[in-house]
Amino acid sequence: MLILAVPACLLLIWLCTVMGAASVSAGEVNRILLHEIFHFPVDMEGISEGSVAIIRDVRLPRVLLGFLTGAALAVCGACYQGIFKNPMADPYILGISSGAALGAAVGIVLHFSSGAAGLPGTTLLAFAGALLTVLLVYAISRRGKRVPVSSLLLSGIAVNQSLSAFMSLLMLFNQQSMEQIMFWTMGSLNGKGWNQILSILPYVLAGTALLMTSARELDILLLGEETAVQLGVSVERVKKKILIVSSIVTAAVVSATGIIGFVGLLVPHVVRLFTGPKHRFLMPVSLVFGGTFLVLCDTLARSVLTQEIPVGIITAACGGPFFLYLLWKARKGGTA
């Protein structure tokens, strides 16, 4: 069943590329993709320049960015739920989201437009804000050589709250930027292009690959840290590795797209219902499902209303009820 899921996901992604406000037919989309991306010698007669530009420069990068973002968030979420042994853990739990938001808000307020590597200044500031926040949380919760997960969770919540307060304050004094900041925090793939993809791709590829090498340790950590130590896991080292790698991946993704909630929390839970708790299966399947889920949500975001809806709203609106349904079903079945 899971093997069938991969082609199904690919098909969905393709469908999402076909769907959109500007109508380009499925056959045309195929020809454009083959010609422009894979450089196949395909007959391009009858396809307008505009259609080619829409598919190549707008829709395809948007779908790909959506997939990368969703995949990265889902894999990081799965890892965090593993090391925190907490079902409510998601990639933002250590304050990355509010750190990134504050960084972005500062960029927006200061009209920090000069960027680098083809990325806007807000993105760079958000990335810096996210990483600094995680460092702060980490420093606060450290006890000698150890980083207890309970204190990580608590200081994550505390830092999250205070940074949110700062951001509200910033918005209060800069009401002309309020809308822009609000829009940023709701997360969107609108207006993002190949630059964003190229900037996060190395983080996402290297990061998820690194995280997946820890699948075995993550399994054992689910039995508790003490048991893991007794079974020979270098618990603190594994925790550090996962915290650092996930933080960097999440920070990269969040700074490019804004705060897209629920994917990192929901997808690993749903996937676990099908694959069981073993990370060897959980992580790759989360990657595929997370990516597809976000592409789907984004397609909804840009096609249900004439106005573009921030995709974070869609993920929460779809994900919340679906999650509740699964919980309800699991409770009836007796297993979660």
């Binding site: 042994k85 054992i220 689910l222 039995l223 007794q230 079974l231 069981g276 073993k278």
Partner: peptide, 30 residues
Amino acid sequence: RARLVAVVPQSYAVEYAFTVEDVVSMGRYP
């Protein structure tokens, strides 16, 4: 150390759906 010393604590619950074989196989981690 885990290849030399193994520990059997009081019986405990695991909140995740591991099979018996999964749990025993974890002993091979070292």
